[in-house]
Structures are given as structure tokens and as C-alpha cells.
Nucleic acid binder design. Structure first.
Lengths: 404, 404
DNA sequence: TTATTTTTTTTGAAACTCAAATTAAATAAT
DNA sequence: ATTATTTAATTTGAGTTTCAAAAAAAATAA
């Protein structure tokens, strides 16, 4: 939450190297001190000092020396890793019909994944908070854990929010706008609770457990009911001035175009969202030919020209929206994440190729595109990643201020 | 140039506070030590130490104590400012038909502005370098200066380039693609020479001399022959992974739309660029009714529906492109910069209002929009700002490593 | 056994920052 | 005039952090 506050040079310094070492260890999985020094440009002497602090605090541990991989001579390197038992972490994803909870250890290893149904639709902040509590308690009970032992929880939800403040401008899970949900949750949970947009959480998962160590600038585009985006700049989530940027779904792809849920016209979502696909397929033919996307896809497979045309346009619009982001951002990598039927079509090679063609052409490699067809658990995993990072930062600060 | 190289913690620290203090002084114009301490969260003791170094190095100077503004009692504060005489700086803008050179002192105060015509069109790297040398020599001669006394020069030009490497993928001033122009210039000039996209230079001018001290995330959109954009994130120019992002002019606003100079279809530039406006006005009516934009504007003023329709569409497309950037970036401020006729129309209240309507609506203030109708000198001033910043960074590094 | 190699730790010094004390330079009060 | 008060700037001394160099540790090679 309170990430953006300015720090004086002395405070900043005290935290920075420790954090850097710790992040390097986590990113590597296992790594010897000498390699940390090389990766971070911190001297071996300092690495020894810092890792000694982290070891004493129980945040990391030495790996048994089996991995004498190089088989050269010389003193064998001792690998370090994050100590999983250090903390219990909860990640939660609120979707329309369910709450998915993932309990992990401090390394991100899954201990339990649990899903409870939601009444559906939008609820009041109070009700939603209660449902979150129930979900957490149920998950803990299933894993035979005490909720009080959990060191931090992150919750991912669709909507427009200022994650640093925990303030939700709008969310499809809430029946009110402008809710200071973070503050409300803080009162009802003993542990620190973090909130974020779900696309940002996928980005965080990519940073911590995916290819984020090699890419410092990338974007994550999620296709679910709507289209979401997370932006990573300099290995950090970019949140915009008001905390509500990255609204790819509502960028305009057609002047005075199709009507969107948000009330405006020509939004990308109004062409590629599932409701938009069904609307076009049905309204155009005058009768309700398709009740769901599966039917629409089946029709396309059968050679139905109208279905094909609808999906083709959605694909082209999606390519156009992606190309615009690439032209603006020049990311190293694009991660497409989703699980629904539409996702398969929108992440097809044909669409990606079209996107590539629409990017300003220079003699430099175009961004990598990675497709993650992860299931529902991905979102909760992203939330857990977020909580792990936040808890790490809190703990590092403690270590820096206590131990010497 | 070599901005992106990683630094070890000790190197970073040595530079960071000095740089921060220096930037604070420049941003403020004049500021007392006690206020520097407050602004930077650096302790007064350290501010004294750092400013003593900077004074000894001749980079700053004390202001005569006339400005006893507060008229309270107590020891009067002594204001510090950047020492103008410390360095001579050159900023240069290459446009299609001229090279504009601005010589400033280290404060950015203009000493001389000089323009020489260019043969026009595209030239070879060698010729362009010679023309740059001529421009610099002519300017220095006019100001009775020795080119050897200039501490740094920055050159702004239209095109797609990787400013950190000084590598030009494509520029309208060069007849070849993929030129390592920075390296070439480095061989032909004694001073450090920096290259950047012109929109980025306007952003830099805004950061150093404009409202950049209060805004850390903003974008600059330039309307000249084409549409350019500079992105500032965290008070730093964002350059993308390959150094070639921010291509607002080539974001697509219409699927399979109008043909653009770049060979693609539906680019924003293909609707709002001057050539695009003339093309539409003339091709549509079948005869060449307008030879230049002035004629088109006059026609609109006379009530010509065709002219009005052409310009209206350009305005809407521009608003759409801007709205897309806002939806993606959520900047605090948008700076619209330009001087041409089209600029007046594209920066009109009507267009801005339209843009505002197309942004995702949340209960938070929309970005400020500032319109800079600066003339040709603006670009060179931006280049000077860039050179000043780079030379400052070099000098600070020297001070940090020499003095104690 | 001894030499060599490589990793890790220890040591001592240098740099940076800051809190607290001190000095400097003004006005207000007496 | 002189003293008190106020505010800014500097000095001092201590605490951190970092690092280079030296030393120690732990393996293999000779």
C-alpha cells in the first residue's frame, strides 16, 4: 500500500541492497552468494553480510550442498533459497460466481487451492468482506491451518482501482462505486490485506515466477469477460497517475463504433467481449441463433459465414488494440492470459501475425508473445505472488531496522 | 548515452544525493539550503556538505542576499542557483528545411539562436554531420564563441531512434535506415553529442524548465508534419524496450483506414497530418482546390462544408488517439506542442472536450491539458535542455569521484 | 601431503548520512 | 545600545553501509 512514500537517502539505502539481494534469490530459485554478487554488482563481502541478516531472520536458508554441479575444484558454492516455512500467504481471486483461494508458503509453493461459490452479481462491501472471510476460513480449515498464522493476503478483482490506496473506483463485484475497500478490509483482518486489479496480478506472477527476471518492460493482456491489461515498466507495475490506467478494453478502435457496457462507443471490449460477440451474431441475423459462445464457435467451425465474420472482426480489432499498445510502449514481451473460449481465437497465430504487421516497422526484433492458457487458479496465484512481494518488503524493512 | 548501465550500490549512492540536490536547485531556480533539505528529505547537514562540493566545482553559486523576502528575523537564508557560466550548451533541431541552433549557458539562458537553411530532403549521414558542424560553427561565430568551449550538444530530429545508443532506425532527415549516427558524430565532435527524438526533447524542456517539477507522469504530443509523442514516467523519459516506442502517430484509429506515409493503413497521422488533410480535401472533390493548409482553413472559415468535414474528422481522430493514450497511461498532464496551422485546430477546446469524453470515467480528476504554441525555437530549447541534463550528470559524476 | 583453485568470511578503511551541538546573522525587546 | 530570540547554516561525532584486500575454508589436482 504505502509504497509510494518518499524515503530519505539513509532509509532508502538501508532497504535497497537487502531487497535487491532477496529478490535476486527468489528470482533465481537457488543461487550461491558469489552469483548474487555478480548479478547485483554488490561486492561479495556485502553479500555475505546481507545474507547473514536474512538467514538470521529466517527469510532464506542454505541448500544442502548436494548440487555440486560444476564438479570443478575449489571451495564448493553454497546455494541459498527463500525459506518456504517463513510465512503463509493467501491469494484470492474474486470472479463473478466464485472466490478462489490459494494458500502458499513463502516460496509460492501451493499448499491448498479452494473455491467457494458466490451468490453472484454485485454485493455490498460489507457482504463481500464477509464472503472473503468465509472463503479464507474455509480454506484454512481445509488445510488445517489457523487463519491467524497467515502473514498476508492479496485479493484480485476486476475493475478500476487505485491499488496503492486500496481504493476501488468501480468493480464488477461491488454494488457501489468509490469504496475504500482496503481500509475496510484492514479493519476486519489481522493480517495485511492488499488489493489489485487482476491483470496486474498476472503481471506480478510473471515477474516473480515467470519470465520477469529477463524482461523489465512487458505487458500482460487478459481476456476474460472483458479485456484487462497490466503494464510492467522497469520491473515494476505501472499504475498511472490516479492508479487507474491500463484500460485497454476501453481504448477506442472505431470512431462512433459499437456500444460498450461502459456507455461509450467503439471500445475494444465492445468488439471482442463475449457479450459483444453474441450480440452481433444474434442481432444481425434477427433471431437468437446463439445462446453462448460455444454455439457461435461451433457455427464457425461448420463454415457459417456470419459467425466467421463476427469472430474475424473481433480478431482484427484485438490485433489493432494490441498493435496500438506496442506502438506506444515498445514492450519486450506481451503475455496473453485467459481461459475462455474467446481467448483461443484472440490469441491465435493469425491474430498475432496481424498485430505484428500493424506495428511500426524497424529493424529490431518485435516483442515476444507468450500465451498463457492458464485456468482459474492463475489469478489466485498472481494474487499470492503479490502478497508474497508485499510481505517480503515489510519483512525486509523489519530486518533492516532491527538486526545489525 | 550510457545512462542505462547498471551501477553498484556504492556508485549509485555517491551520485544520487548530489544529483538530487542539483536537480532540486535547478528546478527551483533559486532555493536556500534549508528548503533543499525539506524538498529532498536529505538532512541539512548533508545538504551543506553536498552544496559545498557543488560550489567548489563551480556548478552552482550563492545568490547575493538581496532576496530577504520573508522579512522575518533569524539568520537570513542564502539562496543557491545553477551557475550559468559553468558551461556552454548547444541545442539543435533538424527540420526539413533548416537547422536551428540555440546556444545557452548552463542555466538554460539563451545566448544566441541561429538558423541556417538546409538543402532539404534527406541527406547522407556524412553530409548531415557536415551540415551540423557548419551550423554549430556559424552559430559560434555569430556569438563570438569558440566551438571548443561548448560542453555538450544535443540534436533533436524526427524519426524512430534509440537515443541511449544514439542509433537511428529511421529519420526523415537521413537517406538511409539504421545509422549509428551517435557514434559517427562522436568521432567528429570534441564535445559529447546526444541525439533524441524531438518529442522527447520537448518533454525534457518541460521537465527542466516547465511544470515537470510538479508532474512526474505526463505525456507530450507534438503536431508538426507528423504526430510525435514523448512519455515521462517517474520524471524520466520512457523509451521503450528497443528505444522506439511512443509512436502515437502510427497507432491505428481505423481498421483498414486511410493510407499512411509509412505504408500501413489507418494510422492517426493519415488523418491529421497536413498531407493527409490536403489529400482528402483535394482527392474528394476531384480537382486540386487547396495547395496548402491555409487555403483549407480559409475555406472552412468561409463555411465550406467539405473543408469543415475534413478538419472535423481530423479533430475527432486526434481526440480518439489522445483518449487511447490516456486510457492506457493515465498521465497527470498532457502537453500539446506545435506551431503549425493544424495545431490550432487539433488543440482546440472542442477536440480536448471530445478526448475527455472518451476517457474511462472515474471519480478522479482528468489530466490537465496544456497547450504550447511555441515557435520553431522550442525544439532547439528542448535539445538544449537535454544537453544540460546530460552534461550535469557527467559533471556530477566527476565531482563525486574527485572531490571529498 | 602439498599445491591449487574457488568460495566465503573477516578486517580495516573510506564514504555517506544524520542527530545534536554549535556558530552565524538577522530582528525584536528592553 | 545591549540582550534575547529566532532562524539558517555549519561542525562534530557516531552509526551505517560498502568495499578492497587479506584470510580462512573447503574442495580437487598433483
Amino acid at each position: 500500500m504505502a509504497r509510494l512514500q518518499r524515503l530519505s537517502p539513509s532509509d532508502e539505502l538501508r532497504e535497497s541492497s537487502r531487497l535487491q539481494v532477496f529478490e535476486t534469490i527468489r528470482a533465481a530459485g537457488q543461487i550461491a552468494r558469489i552469483d548474487i554478487a555478480q548479478a547485483t554488482l554488490i561486492s561479495p563481502a556485502t553479500v555475505t553480510a546481507i545474507t547473514a541478516d536474512l538467514l538470521a531472520a529466517g527469510m532464506i536458508e542454505e541448500v544442502s550442498p548436494e548440487a555440486a554441479k560444476g564438479a570443478k575444484r575449489g571451495r564448493p558454492r553454497v546455494a541459498l533459497k527463500v525459506r518456504g516455512q517463513a510465512h503463509l500467504i493467501a491469494g484470492m481471486k474474486l470472479s463473478h460466481h466464485a472466490i478462489t483461494t490459494l494458500i502458499t508458503d513463502f516460496e509460492g509453493t501451493e499448499l491448498l487451492c479452494h473455491e467457494i461459490p458466490l451468490p453472484g452479481g454485485q454485493s455490498s462491501p460489507e457482504d463481500l468482506c464477509q464472503q472473503i472471510q468465509s472463503a479464507l476460513n474455509a480454506s484454512c480449515a481445509a488445510a488445517d491451518l489457523d487463519p491467524a498464522d497467515i502473514s498476508g493476503m492479496a485479493i484480485g478483482m476486476a475493475g478500476v482501482m487505485d491499488a496503492d490506496r486500496g481504493f476501488i473506483y468501480w468493480s464488477s463485484s461491488l454494488n457501489q462505486r468509490n469504496v475504500d475497500f482496503g481500509a475496510y478490509l484492514a479493519q476486519h483482518f489481522a493480517m495485511p490485506v492488499f488489493i489489485d486489479n487482476d491483470a496486474n496480478l498476472v503481471a506480478k506472477a510473471e515477474l516473480l515466477f515467470g519470465h520477469g527476471d529477463r524482461h523489465t518492460n512487458f505487458i500482460v493482456v487478459t481476456v476474460e469477460h472483458g479485456v484487462g491489461m497490466g503494464i510492467v515498466i522497469n520491473s515494476q507495475i505501472y499504475r498511472g497517475a490516479r492508479g487507474c490506467g491500463a484500460e485497454l478494453g476501453h481504448t477506442k478502435v472505431q470512431l462512433e463504433g459499437a456500444l460498450c457496457q461502459c456507455g461509450q462507443r467503439g471500445c475494444l471490449e465492445a468488439y471482442v467481449g463475449d457479450y459483444a460477440l453474441l450480440r452481433e451474431a444474434n442481432v444481425t441475423s434477427g433471431v437468437e441463433r446463439h445462446r453462448d459462445l460455444a454455439s457461435l464457435y461451433a457455427a464457425m467451425a461448420d463454415g457459417d459465414m456470419m459467425a466467421r465474420s463476427t469472430l474475424d472482426r473481433a480478431g482484427r480489432m484485438f490485433a489493432m488494440g494490441l498493435a496500438n499498445v506496442v506502438n506506444i510502449f515498445d514492450p519486450q514481451m506481451i503475455v496473453l492470459a485467459g481461459a475462455q473460449l474467446a481467448f483461443g481465437y484472440l490469441s491465435s497465430d493469425k491474430v498475432i501475425e496481424e498485430m505484428r504487421r500493424w506495428v511500426v516497422q524497424v529493424d529490431a526484433p518485435l516483442p515476444d508473445v507468450r500465451v498463457h492458457g492458464w485456468g482459474n487458479k492463475m489469478w489466485a496465484k498472481g494474487a499470492a505472488a503479490h502478497a508474497i512481494e508485499e510481505v517480503s518488503a515489510l519483512r525486509i524493512r523489519e530486518v533492516a531496522n532491527h538486526a545489525g
